[in-house]
């Protein structure tokens, strides 16, 4: 019951937060000197009447407050509006969200499946060659910027011809059978997944290793060992359970990154995900699209944190009594 009340309270708290986020972002975008109609205005073959029609259609002839009010009312009603080219924002996002989710969920799954065990292993075998090699590899992973690594891999793909140059499907995708389609997508995913995997693996492995080392150094582990418990029981029953708590908070952030974490890599690999769409929208001040994606990002972050906190309540009795 307490937990339920807590969740309800948290959800109510997000409402003013979302309002503030929306006001700030709306005004920043609208007050920037970017003219959403610039391209039309500079096209000699477009008549002034058409430009005026567009201005009225996008509501640019009204004061900002009115524009915000209109946007907010339709947003609350669940209508995300239309993009500057007249397409529905919701359908535009729906085109891209599955692609981004596909990429990020594979990456998150892989990094957690590989990163957490590697972190534990490195901590247990502290200062062995294995630990040192892992340290070097993860240092490289953390130091290399994602876009640069992506460009390197693209060049690698051009030189060898082993991988396609970006995208998600090949030109002949529609005519393939189910296995062909599956292989085609996998083939296209390998490089972007590899980039994101290397980079997030590094962080995760180090985090896990540090947590584990902290715990292994604590008195109760020493006590458990002194008591004569087998090493396996000490590590996996006593130490691991305590070391995993901070990771749950991290999982909350990973959830927030599901839709927005891969923008740079997506751009370099020309991946048809949200990142590219939103970058282009920001450049053109396509307000409805930008606002929709910002709100989505905010909601995902809040939701991620909420989920992490709930998980913590479940796993950590100390928090349960405090809440």
């Amino acid at each position: 019951m307490d937990t339920l009340k807590y969740i309800l309270k948290r959800i109510l708290q997000t409402i003013p937060l979302l309002i503030i986020v929306s006001v700030v972002s709306f005004f920043i975008i609208r007050l920037s000197p970017v003219d959403p109609l610039a391209e039309l205005k500079l096209n000699p073959s477009i008549s002034p009447e058409t430009v005026e029609k567009e201005r009225a259609r996008l509501g640019l002839d009204k004061p900002i407050i009115v524009q915000y009010g209109k946007w907010a009312i339709s947003f609350v009603k669940g209508d995300l509006g239309v993009t500057s080219t007249g397409e529905k924002v919701s359908s535009k996002l729906a085109e891209r969200i599955p692609n981004t989710l596909l990429l990020t969920s594979i990456v998150i799954l892989l990094t957690w499946l590989v990163g957490v065990p590697l972190g534990i292993l490195a901590a247990v075998r502290w200062k062995t060659p294995f630990d040192r090699i892992m340290t070097v590899v993860t240092s490289i992973g953390m130091a290399i910027p994602s876009f640069f690594f992506a460009v390197l891999l693209l060049m690698f793909a051009v030189r060898t011809g082993w991988f396609p140059i970006g995208g998600l499907t090949s030109a002949g995708y529609a005519d393939m059978n189910i296995f062909g389609k599956f292989w085609d997508i996998t083939h296209h995913l390998i490089l972007p997944v590899f980039v994101l995997f290397t980079i997030s693996l590094a962080g995760l492995q180090r985090q896990m290793r540090a947590n584990m080392l902290d715990v292994l150094d604590s008195d109760y582990v020493k006590f458990a060992r002194a008591k004569g418990l087998s090493e396996n029981v000490v590590i996996y029953k006593h130490a691991l359970r305590n070391a995993v708590n901070p990771m749950i908070t991290l999982l909350g952030f990973e959830f927030a990154g599901l839709l927005s974490g891969a923008a740079l890599t997506e751009y370099v690999f020309q991946y048809p995900g949200l990142g590219r769409l939103i970058l282009e929208a920001v450049m053109k001040s396509d307000i409805n699209l930008v606002m929709a994606s910002l709100m989505m990002g905010a909601v995902m972050l809040i939701l991620g944190n909420l989920i992490a906190d709930i998980l913590l309540i479940i796993t950590d009795p100390r928090i349960r009594t405090g809440a």
């Binding site: 000197p33 003219d35 959403p36 205005k41 500079l42 001040s285």
Partner: peptide, 12 residues
């Protein structure tokens, strides 16, 4: 400067 801002200067 950014394209859209430049056009704004030129035509507005």
């Amino acid at each position: 400067i950014e394209f859209n801002s430049l056009v704004n200067k030129l035509v507005s």
